[in-house]
Design a binder for these strands. Structure first.
Lengths: 182, 182
DNA sequence: GGTTGGCTTCGAGTGCGCTCGAAGGCCTAG
DNA sequence: CTAGGCCTTCGAGCGCACTCGAAGCCAACC
């Protein structure tokens, strides 16, 4: 019955190739490869259980805190974008004595969560709204849950659309293969 | 060995809710419901076969030709956007004596194909490129195939990302459900 | 002590994909 | 004959999510 508020938001780092324009290549990321290895277990990332959540945490041999450029390299999100996210209130960071951003594991986890939401197609405004509800305390849980369910529906719709598109593209590919040999 | 060029590009009309910001609702579309019924057969739109392609063609009781506003209603794409697509060379249309756009089934099919590609995340420039290659003739097939394969990889990557996001969101949802009963 | 390099803020710019509005043409109903 | 409505073109505007650059601070190394 305690405030569930923040929960283990250290969930994992997605591919960060948010714009689907590029062929999803980006500076090789350590966390990404961790995620890959988890996904490879059965190929399709089943509903996240605690074990997977734990598996996706940062490895122990990473430094306790990271600078912005390290986070950028790890996550594939540019430093510019990380600062932008902070400016608009999407993430918060501690600062060192010199005023520089300092990221610990929890911060990295929050960035990961935000990135997953963004990757799922949730607009920044939606992510902001969710995070504000979390900050506002436990009596916003209903609304948070509603938001999550809505986003879940959006994800499912996108999956359906993508599967349709995949079918169309595959149809074209196999047709080309059948007629001109590829 | 004839020019494969255009092929049966009458493949179906997707949801047209391209921007994933909205919860994928749009004016109820007749073609969409056809697609839905096809998809419902086994839930996941398997690789398109000829039967499905035929099933997704326009029903026989639609008028032989359509005006732009009818196409807009059917596809869920606004007339403005249809004109925009034409302006940038993405689709071509016939005109009637008064200069108005006239769409037949093939035109609708081409719009559908374009929409599927757009839905798959291919930028407009990529769709343009593909269509130009098709127009350029059969000796561009290698490049077309390469484009399709590249897009296929992008789709698969997106599917992976979406599944990851779905897992994260589901994890959150079930966690909320477990602690505050939803 | 200087210089290098990475960090800071802030505001402005970019690219994409629409989205809209103005100004006018054509057809049909009253 | 006129009004309404749908169509046309064209150019401009918008919203989103970055993306960049300028100007300056601070720490560390030579």
């Amino acid at each position: 019955m305690t405030a569930v508020s923040t929960l283990p938001e250290t969930v994992g780092i997605p591919s960060a190739g948010i714009s689907s324009a590029e062929p999803h290549v980006h500076p090789a990321s350590r966390l990404r490869s961790i995620l890959d290895s988890v996904a490879a277990e059965d190929g399709s990332l089943p509903p996240l259980n605690d074990e997977l959540v734990r598996a996706m945490r940062l490895p122990d041999d990473l430094p306790e805190t990271l600078g912005i450029s390290e986070v950028a390299e790890i996550t594939g999100i540019t430093a510019h974008t990380l600062r932008y996210y902070e400016r608009i209130g999407l993430v918060e960071t501690d600062r060192d004595a010199a005023g520089r951003r300092v990221y610990d594991r929890d911060a990295l986890g929050r960035i990961a969560f935000v990135t997953w939401l963004r990757l799922s197609g949730m607009p920044i405004a939606g992510v902001s709204r969710y995070l504000e509800l979390v900050k506002a305390g436990p009596d916003t849980q209903d609304e948070r849950l509603a938001l999550l369910l809505e986003q879940r529906a959006a994800i499912v719709a996108q999956l359906r659309d993508l599967q349709g598109a995949l079918a169309v593209v595959d149809y074209k590919i196999t047709t080309y293969g059948g007629t001109c040999g590829a």
